[in-house]
Design a protein around this nucleic acid. Sequence first.
DNA 1: CATACATATGAACATTTGTTCATATGTATG
DNA 2: CATACATATGAACAAATGTTCATATGTATG
Lengths: 118, 118
Amino acid sequence: MSDHIEVCSFIHAHEEVVEMVRERMPEEELLYDLAELFKVFGDSTRIKILYALFESELCVCDIAQLLNMTQSAISHQLRVLKQSHLVKYRRDGKIILYSLADDHVRRIINQGMEHVEE
Amino acid sequence: MSDHIEVCSFIHAHEEVVEMVRERMPEEELLYDLAELFKVFGDSTRIKILYALFESELCVCDIAQLLNMTQSAISHQLRVLKQSHLVKYRRDGKIILYSLADDHVRRIINQGMEHVEE
DNA sequence: CATACATATGAACATTTGTTCATATGTATG
DNA sequence: CATACATATGAACAAATGTTCATATGTATG
C-alpha cells in the first residue's frame, strides 16, 4: 500500500493502479449519459416540478401557479423532463396531465435528499 | 397569493390540488440544496472521477492521467467534489490521496445508472 | 535552505443553460 | 368553422459553468 513511487508528475503516476481503474471504468458513453441524467436533476425548478408530481398528476398551469412561474418556463422544463423519461403525460380534454414516469425518479431524489439532509 | 402571470388563466381548475401539493412541498432551501447536489453529479468529468474512486484512492495526477486531462482541471473538479462532501482526502508524503466520502455517493450513482441502463 | 515536486488557485474565455417574449400548434366547444 | 383555451416552440439574452494558462502554496529531500 505504501510503496508509492514518489514521483507523480503525470507521466509516472501510480501506473498499475491507474491501469486497473481504467479497465474497470464503464463505457465513456454510459458515463456521459449518466452525467446528462444528473444534469436534469441539477436545477431547482425541475426538482420542484418532480417533487410536485410526487403528490399528484398536474397540468402545466397548475405547476406554473404552484411555483409562481410562467407557463412557458414550465413547459420548457417539462420538455427536458420528458426527453429524459422522467415524466410522462396523458391528455384529458384540452388539458395535458403530467406525472412521474416511474419509481426511479423517486428513488434517485430520495437518495440525494438523504445526503443533503445530513 | 396575489396576482399571477398572464397567458394561462390561473382561475381555472385544480386549485385544491395545487394547494395540497404546496403544503407538502419541502422547504425551498432544501430543494435548492438538493438541486445543487445533483448539479455536482451532472458533469461527466466529475462522474468519471467518482467512478475511478469507486476502485481505489487516487492522487490528482493519477486521475489526470486516467482521464487524459490537465492536473489543473482535475484539481478544480476535486475542489467541487470536496465542497459537496462527496470526496475526502489524506496526505501521504507529498502526495494527497482522494477517496469517496461515504456510501451515499455510490448509491446515488447506482440509482442513476439503473435509470440510464434501461 | 534550496530545489523539485504535488497540488491549489485566480482570471480569462468559450460554452452551456434557464428564462422571457412573441408566436405557433393543437383541441374542444358554441 | 370560428373562437377560446392549453400547451409548445424558437430566438434572444443574461447568468452559470468547465477548461486553460500562469502562477502560487505547501511539502519533502539532498
